[in-house]
Amino acid sequence: MRASKNSLSPTIQMRSSGFTLIELMVTIAVLAIIVGIAAPSISTQLANQRVKATANTLANALKEAKVESVVRRQALDFSIDDSTNLISIKTKGVSPDEVARYSYSSKSIIKAQKSSITFNPSKRVDAIIYNICDKNSSATMQVIVTAVANISTVVGGAC
């Protein structure tokens, strides 16, 4: 035979009624403290990821410009436009054709001594160092291009 809820004593009914308001408030307060501690770490990780993604995009674009200049047997201009967050590769000449275009995060900053460089079919280029930074963080990386068009990515640098 089953006992109905009405036949239970009042103390048993009170125990099985659920969580109290104080228990819920304490749980929410603990969760808020944990989130408050974790939030700065998460934003730093996101900034680091943005810098890494921009550095990889830049390195891939540089490698494509190097290869395309050899394949096409002509000089190619490689330029970065910070106002539009675009990287472009164009043929050199009177009427330049766009070979490729890359975009990168608007929260990333790419700094260099020159805004454009020229890749020659002889695998020569002006040596340059690109510094990549995040606007909201101190995360930095460098993409280094040597005179013989070797391209490498390292952590560090300054903007």
Rank of each mutant, 00 (worst) to 15 (best):
M1T: 14
M1G: 15
R2T: 15
A3W: 05
A3T: 14
N6A: 14
S7A: 14
S7G: 10
L8T: 06
P10L: 02
P10H: 04
Q13L: 13
Q13T: 12
Q13P: 05
Q13A: 12
M14E: 13
R15T: 11
S17N: 15
S17L: 13
F19H: 10
F19E: 07
I22R: 15
E23W: 03
L24N: 11
L24W: 07
M25H: 08
V26T: 14
V26F: 10
T27L: 08
A29M: 09
A29Q: 06
L31A: 12
A32E: 03
A32R: 09
I34W: 02
V35A: 14
V35E: 03
V35Y: 05
I37D: 03
P40Q: 13
S41C: 11
S41V: 12
Q45M: 02
Q45C: 00
L46R: 04
N48D: 07
N48I: 01
R50T: 09
R50A: 01
V51N: 03
K52G: 00
A53H: 01
A53D: 02
A53S: 07
T54G: 03
T57P: 08
T57F: 09
L58I: 12
L58G: 09
N60P: 02
L62K: 01
L62F: 03
K63H: 04
K66F: 03
E68L: 06
S69W: 05
V70R: 04
V71M: 13
R73V: 11
R73Q: 14
A75M: 01
A75I: 00
L76T: 01
F78Y: 00
F78Q: 01
I80P: 00
D81Y: 02
D82Q: 08
D82T: 08
S83A: 15
T84Y: 10
L86E: 13
L86D: 10
I89G: 04
I89V: 14
K90C: 07
T91E: 05
G93V: 09
V94G: 06
P96Q: 11
P96F: 08
E98C: 03
V99L: 04
V99W: 08
A100R: 15
A100Y: 11
R101A: 12
S106V: 07
K107I: 13
S108W: 00
I109P: 01
I109Y: 02
K111S: 12
K111F: 06
K111L: 11
A112Y: 00
K114V: 08
K114F: 08
S115I: 06
T118G: 06
T118K: 10
T118C: 06
F119Q: 02
N120I: 01
N120K: 02
P121V: 05
S122A: 05
K123P: 00
K123M: 11
K123N: 08
R124T: 04
R124W: 01
A127V: 09
A127Q: 10
I128K: 10
I128S: 09
Y130S: 01
N131K: 12
N131P: 04
I132M: 00
C133S: 14
D134P: 00
D134N: 09
D134M: 05
D134F: 02
K135W: 03
K135E: 04
K135R: 12
K135M: 10
N136T: 07
S137I: 06
S138M: 10
M141R: 15
M141H: 14
I144N: 08
V145M: 13
V145K: 13
T146K: 15
A147D: 06
V148M: 04
V148T: 09
A149E: 03
I151P: 02
T153N: 07
V155F: 03
V155S: 09
V155G: 08
G157A: 11
